[in-house]
Design a protein around this nucleic acid. Sequence first.
RNA 1: GCCUCGGUGGCGGAAUCGGUAGACGCUGCGGACUUAAAAUCCGUUUUCCGCGAGGAAGUGGGGGUUCAAGUCCCCCCCGAGGUACCA
Length: 984
Amino acid sequence: MSDQYSPSELEKKWQKLWAESGIDKAQEESPLPKFYSLVMFPYPSGDLHMGHARVYTIADVISRFKRMQGFNVLNPMGFDAFGLPAENAAQDKGIHPGDWTEANMANMRRQLKSLGTSFDWTRELASCHKDYYRWTQFIFLKFYEKGLVYRKESPVNWCPACGTVLANEQVEDGYCWRHSEVLVEKKLLAQWFFKVTVYAEELLNDLELLKEWPEQVKTMQRNWIGRSEGAEIDFVFEGSPKKITVFTTRLDTIFGVSYLVLAPENELVAEITHPAQRRKVDEYRARSAALSDLDRTQQQGDKTGVFTGSYAINPYSGERVPVWIADYVLGNYGTGAVMGVPAHDERDFLFANKYHLPIKPVIAAKAGLGALPSEYLLQRIDPLNETHLRDCELILGQYFANLKSDYGVQASEIDQSLSEYAVNGNIFWILRRKDSQEILGSISLRPLDADRCELRRMFIAPSARGLGLARQLISFFDEQARGLGFKEVYLDSRVVLAPANALYQSCGFVPTERYNDNVAADVFYVKNLTIGAAYCDYGYTHSSGAFSGLSSSQAKQEMAAYAQQAGFGRLKIQYRLRDWLVSRQRYWGTPIPLVYDAEGKAKAVAYEELPVELPKNSEYKKLSECADWLSYTDPKTGEKLTRESDTMDTFVCSSWYFLRFADAQNQSEPFSAEALKRWLPVDQYVGGIEHAILHLLYARFFTKALRDVGLLDFSEPFTRLLSQGMVTMHSPKEGKVAKMSKSRGNVVAIDSFVAEHGADAARLFMLFAGPPSDEIEWSEDGARGQSRFLGRIWRLVSSEADKLQNIPAQEFASADLASLEEGEAELIRAVHKTIRAVSHDLQADRYAFNTAIARLFELLNILTRQELVCQASVKLFALKNFLQLLAPFAPHLTQECWGLVGLEGFVHQSAWPSFDPECVVDENFELVLQINGKKVDAISCSKSASSEELERLALSNAKICARLGANPTKKVIIVPGRLVNVVF
RNA sequence: GCCUCGGUGGCGGAAUCGGUAGACGCUGCGGACUUAAAAUCCGUUUUCCGCGAGGAAGUGGGGGUUCAAGUCCCCCCCGAGGUACCA
C-alpha cells in the first residue's frame, strides 16, 4: 500500500468493477420505491471540460445518495446528437456528420465514465439513431393526425451562414445564436409549425403545479408566454363597410385615440390605401420588409410611418381618425393593428410628436379633474351667427353686471372689454345645460402669437356656481388651445380675481413675468400646454363621454360591456407565445415524415413505413438536393410522391427523450404504458439555466400533447428542477472572468485534470465552491485544497487500516456513551451530528452540497486530531460512517478505503447511515449573556438548567455586573438553550 | 424600461424560527520537520485603537419595528440574469 494518494489507477480500477457488477443499473422489477434522476443530455460536441462536468457531478451525487437511501434509481444518459455543428464539422473536415458524431459520443462516454458518474448505460440513446428518430417521426405523425401540425407560408428568420431557418429563440439580438457576427434576415417560406399556442393557457396555469421548480425559471416561462388581457375593437372605415380590428389592453384610453396604425405587412393596407398615398405607402412597405429584426429594434425611439390617406371612425366617440402604417407595430402580434393614444402611451407619444398628430389626454391621476359631465354641452360661438351673438351678449351682460356689483368695476372698463371681445380672432364658447339650453357659463381664448394664447374670460353663471364646473372649463380650454397648436396659455390679474387665485394655481397656472408691456397688472400666470411625456399609469377617465369620471378598471369593464352589446368589440386574451416553427432546411436532423402528391398536397407517411431514414450518401447534402431520396412511390397504391425535404428542429428530439429512457429498447412503440407508469414523471431534473425557456417549455408542451393523443396520462414531465450555475474562469482573451468555453480559451480539460488530480478532487471542488445554483469560478488553488482533503483521508486510513482489519463493524449510539472514555463519546456524538447534518443538507429542498462537505471536513478534523485516543471498534465505526457520508461526493476514494478498513462489498450499496437523536444533543451548551442585546460573555451551562437558574447565572456573572453597575434592570429576556439578555 | 435573483473578511462562501456574524475551505503570515525544497503537521488571519488586559466599529447606503436585525418593513444605490417597439 502506497503512502501517497494516487487517484488515477484507483479510480480506473473501481470504474471497471462497478461497470462489471452492474450496480448502477435501474431495476425493472424491484420492491424499492423508484427515483428517476435525469440530467439534460449533452450535444456531442467533442471534448468535455470542467464547465460541463459540474452538472453531471451534481446529478451523480443525487443519484448515489438516493440509491444508498434505498431507492431504485434510474439515472440514464444519452446524446442529443442531431444538429448543425456536425454539419459544420463535416464541411470543414470532410467527414460525414454521422461519423463525426459517433466519434464524439465515444469520447464523451469515456470522459463521463472517467468522472465516476453512475449512469445506467444500458439505456443509452442517441437522437440521431434511427431506432430513436423513428419514434420522433411517429410522435410527429400522431400530432399531425391530431391537428397540432400545420404548414404556413411565413416570414422566417434566415441565417445566411447556416443556410437555414432559425426559430425565434435561436435569434439573439438579431444575430444567429451559432454565428454571433451574422445578422439574421427575413425570408418568406412555407414552413411546418406545432400549435404550441393551443396550450398557452395550460402551460401558464400549470406552472402553479410546479412547486419544486425554481421561481426564476417559472417567471421566465411566464414572461415568455406573455399573457395579456385586453379587448378587440372594430373601427369601421369612413365611407366603406371595411373594418379594422385593434387589440388594446388600455380600452380606458379609447377616447384619446387620435389615429390608428397598421403594421406595414398587414393585409388590409393594400385595400385601404388612398390612391394619392399609394406610392408613399408602397415604398414604406418595401423598405420595412427589407429591414432585419435588428434594424427594426435598433430604431426604437425613432418612429417612422406613413399616412394611408384613409380615415376610420372611433365607435365610441364617432370621431374620424387617420389611419397610418408604421413599423413599430408588429404584424404577428395581436391583430397587427393598434390604436394610437399619444397622451397615454410612450410610443404613440413619440410618433404623434414626430408627425404632429393630436395629443388628447383622457386619463388623469386624480378623480374628477377635467371631466365635463354629460348633461352639459359646450358650444363654440360663430361670430356670423345672429343667435350665437345674442347668447354671447346675454352671458357677457350677466358677467359684467356681476363684475360691477361684486367688485365695483368701472363702466368704461366694461365697454373696453366688450370692444376687445369684438376683435376678430377671439374664440368664445358657451356652456349650456343640454336639456333646457340654459346658459351656465362661458370661456374665451385670444391668440397672442403662434405659440401663445390668453384665457380671456371665464364666467360661471350664479345659478351654476358650486357645481365644480370651473376646473372642467379650464381643462376644456387647455385641450382646445393645445389642439390649436398653442404651447403656453396666459392669464392676467384682471381675469384672476382674488377668490379664483387658488383655483387657477391648482389647475397648473404659475405666477410669471408680464408678457406684454401694454398691460398694467401686477400678477401674471402662465401654464405650459406642451405635454412632456405620456401619462401611462392608470387613473380616472375624463373627456370620455358617458364613460367620464370612472377609474381605469371600471372604465375598461364598462366600455368592454358596451362594445360587446353594440357588437363592435369583445374581451380578448392575447399571448406573446407563438407557434413553434419546426422546419429546418438541413441534412443532419430527423426527416419530417410527410410526402406530397402531384398537386403539392401533403400527407402522412404510413406508420409501418417508419422510419423515414436519412439517405446514406457518403457525401451528405441538404435533403432538398438528394434527388433519388426525394422521389417516393407509395408501396400500396404505387402513387408517385415527393418527400418533404425539411428536417425537424433538434428541440423536437429533446422534447421526449426522458420518456424513451423509461423503455429505451422498445422496438414496437416509443415507450410502453407500463414503463412510463414505473418511472415517470422525472423526480429530479438537473440542467443549465440556458434551457429555462425553450427546452423546458417544449418538453412540457410535448407531455401535454402526448397526453391528448392518448400516449401518456400525466401533464407535467419534471417534478423537481435544479438549474445549476455555470463554471467560470479568467479568460485571457477577454481579460475577465467568463463562462468556461473553448472559444474563450479558458477551459480546464477533464482528461488532464483527472489524470493528475483525480475525478474525486474535481467533483469535490465543484460541489464545495458554492451552492449548485450559483455560478462558481474554477480555481486551481481551491481544487488543490480538495486534493489535500482526499490525501488526509488516504493517510488516515492507511495508518489505521492494519489495526482495523479483524475488528467486527459495530454501531455505537447513546446507550454506549456512558461506558466509554470521554474522547470516544465525543467522537461518537460528532459522528451522529455529522450524519444528521449531511443528510439534511442532501435533502431535495436544500441540496447544500457545499455545507455537507464542510461538515465532513469537520469530522475528519476530529478524526485526525493528535490527542484523539480511542479503541479500534469506535474508530472503525467513525470511519465507516464517514466513508458512507462522503461516498456520493468522492465515490472512488471512499470505495477504496472501504475495503482497506476491512469492510465488505460496495460502499455505494450500503445503507445510508441514520443518527440517534439522543446522540446529537449535548449535555452542555454555551449560554450567551447580553446587556441590551449586546454580547458580553458566554458561559458553559447545563442543558437542563431552568429559566430561573439561567437568570441567576446571568445576574451573578462578573462581566454582567460590571456593565450593569448601579443601574436597575428593567427586563430580563431568557431564551432557553441560547441566551439571557439583561435590559436596563 | 419591465421582471427575477443577488450585495457578508484578502478570496469562495456559512449562519432552519429574528437570538454568539464570519462555520468550512483557499490565500497570506509565523513556526515545526528537512542539508535544502516539495509534501506534511502546528499556530494565526474582519477592521480600528491599545504593549497588554481589553475596548470600539462591522453584513451596499439611509430610515424604521424589536429586549435583540445579515435575517422583518419603507426608501435609495450597485451588480448579475431574463426580456423588450408585445399595444
